[in-house]
Design a protein around this nucleic acid. Structure first.
Lengths: 232, 232
DNA sequence: AGTTTTATCGAACGTTCGTTCGAGAAAGAT
DNA sequence: ATCTTTCTCGAACGAACGTTCGATAAAACT
């Protein structure tokens, strides 16, 4: 019953290692096509041993999604306190989403692509966070619209705009290669530009403050250092 | 060996009925979570009987995807001959994609969501059509950009713009309800507006010719009439 | 040292899966 | 009416699946 720091940390780090590996395989072959034997093989943990760290395959998916959503939300809410300017806040939001996506492609792909692979309570909990996140984005868009005179604003439906933005951002798991030549900064700048002022339309670079592009340091959702093998 | 019209038609119509049902179930529960027994139950065709109409479960998915892509491409190429104005062509392209999507939600969801569920030759063939489609869209965007002076154009990366547009359009299966209050016209207008002139930015309604909204007649990919049950 | 807690695993269980086979019914042709 | 082709299906097969159990090893604690 006495949980010393070392034991607690050991268990947690190995669970995290399993989750990280599982996320990678889920992203590669899809949740339903991945077997517990796949995860066993890749982690080096025996098939039965996995069930010491989770109650079911479902729970692995849940832990990945819940953790992932928690981190994005957490970081977003921290960032949004930085400024009160609606356009700048929206740019922060896009930057937060895309840089986190790029730094955690596997987990975010699992989050986007396996949204309906859970059922029951677990599905409810993840869906709750998704709705919460959606509301934050919708609110941010509404703020931008309201900060404008009717003349400087496009007559775009708020719901469509919200999901269009999500579509632009979440679709990247279908084509973007984080290792490739195109950096996260390019992604953020282009998508923020596209969404705000469109493919044609007038410039808004001053407002978006793209003259000195921000640093986009990778933000990994897992705490532990990379562990190639967990053989003790 | 003598294939009379009636026999040929009978076989084809039943295969189509199976494909249509399979597409619906694939869309509902995902390809890998759908069993041949599910399809058997919903179609009323016995488990073994299904294999008279297809060689494998893979082939069912392939036939749906191949058929679906074929139809969109076919219709798009027909429509694109209507005009030479780049902006109008792009609007046509968006309208074509979204109205087809809305009229064939199940099939298009299967196309978007199960893009990597096939392997080997079948995957190659569908991927080929996808690349072809992507090229057409990319070309259309390039034409729009080239028709503009540098001043009237946003400095947006062509690859990012292409996939951002696909993201906006394909993401709708995650939220849009074709039976709901929001019509396809709303979808097309808003997304075309958003993509071309952005959430802020200047108007482009004249160019997009939104004053008299076009008719968006449902275009169903299957030829046959609706068949509730195939009991003969 | 001994005792308790934590961690690991081989072997197996029951289920479900995609697919096959051969017999037979239905439909069409002559 | 007879023969041929087209179509259907119950029953079964082998493989793979998620999960469990009891034994055992490793680690931590006293």
């Amino acid at each position: 019953m006495v949980a010393v720091q070392k034991d607690f940390s050991r268990y947690d780090r190995k669970l995290e290692f399993i989750l990280r590996t599982a996320a990678r395989i889920f992203a590669e072959k899809g949740y339903h096509s991945t077997s517990m034997r796949d995860i066993s093989r890749e982690t080096g943990v025996s098939l039965a041993g996995l069930y010491y760290y989770c109650q079911s395959k479902d729970e692995l998916l849940f832990l990945i999604q819940d953790n992932c959503f928690g981190r994005v939300l957490e970081r977003l809410e921290g960032r949004l306190t930085e400024t009160h300017d609606p356009v700048e806040r929206l740019r922060l939001l896009i930057e937060n989403h895309l840089s986190f996506f790029a730094a955690n492609m596997a987990e975010m792909k699992v989050l986007s692509h396996e949204a309906d692979s859970l059922a029951g309570e677990m599905h409810e909990k993840v869906s709750g966070k998704k709705q919460q996140y959606t509301q934050v984005v919708r609110r941010a868009l509404a703020d931008v619209a309201e900060s404008r005179t009717e003349k400087d604003r496009r007559p775009v439906d708020l719901t469509i705009a919200t999901f269009a933005l999500f579509g632009m951002m979440n679709w990247i798991y279908n084509w973007y290669d984080p290792q490739g030549a195109m950096g996260v900064s390019d992604l953020v700048e282009n998508i923020a530009r596209l969404f705000l002022s469109g493919f044609l339309g007038e410039a808004c670079d001053e407002e978006l403050n793209f003259s000195n592009p921000a640093e986009h340091e990778p933000f990994h959702m897992w705490r532990g250092t990379k562990i190639e093998s967990m053989n003790t």
